[in-house]
Amino acid sequence: MERANATTRPDTPSPPRPTDAGQGEVRAAVASEAKARLVTEGISVHYGATLGVRDVSLTFRDKTVTALIGPSGCGKTTFLRSLNRMHDLSRGVKVTGRAVLDGTDIYASGVDPVTIRRRIGMVFQKPTPFPTMSIYDNVVAGLKLVGIRDRRLLDEVAERSLRQAALWDEVKDRLKAPAAGISGGQQQRLSIARALAVEADVLLMDEPTSSLDPQSTMRIEELIHQLKDDVTIIIVTHNMQQAARVSDYTAFFYEGNLIEVSDTNTMFTNPREQRTNDYITGRFG
């Protein structure tokens, strides 16, 4: 289905780059003190002949949270995974464009995806504990498996990460228990703790709270607020209230295209695009 794509773009002549165009106030408000941490330039992802996302250019700044929203199947996960080269391993997936982390294109030849992923952490849509490891070993896996053996340090990191992920109180007495033996929501928070333990500079979160109860969800949202001082956060969410609560910027995706991005306030009060408005007011998706 070929659609006249250009009409959905706010800017026309130069390479489309929504963050740079028509967002004067936004940049003045936040960007002046925050440097660009991660910048994508025309990222497209294809699954064989199927389009994942097309030509997405976004800027993620230091000390900000960006929410990615849009109906199911619009390419949020696909885009997120392109930011830490997670598509590398899947056969038949083609990623084009650039994703520049602190001045280095992560897709440039010679760049080691492993180093990139140490700096750009990820929490997946579904909980993914390592089934044979204990809760403790799961949390510190990212440190232990690269050779960090200092027991005191590991203990410290484990407790801090579990506290941050609002899981400590529930598991502190059974850290050596197998991770497979805790509930789905607890496993999800464990996955979050594990991602926190490696202290990445950028944190990609794919619907991190979709399997959590309201209490844990609130604690994770608080965590996102706290983390913001050190970490650039990109979060996918289907919950508009959550996007409004936690994010500074919101990007709306639709059918593989980035339709609109602006600061979250503007997005939810006065979106430029009709489709964005329809989506956030619940008229579709």
Binding site: N84, M86, L89, P113, V114, T115, I116, R117, R118, R119, G121, M122, F124, K126, T128, P129, F130, P131, T132, M133, A141, G142, L145, V146, S191, R194, A195, V198, A200
Partner: peptide
């Protein structure tokens, strides 16, 4: 597959992921 991705997302090299997460699960 998600177990491998979880390991890689922590910045672990491929062989580490296989040896320490995938292989034990398949023990």
């Amino acid at each position: 597959w998600s177990i491998r991705e979880a390991g890689l997302a922590l910045g672990l090299p491929r062989w580490r992921v296989v040896l320490n997460t995938v292989l034990p699960a398949a023990r």
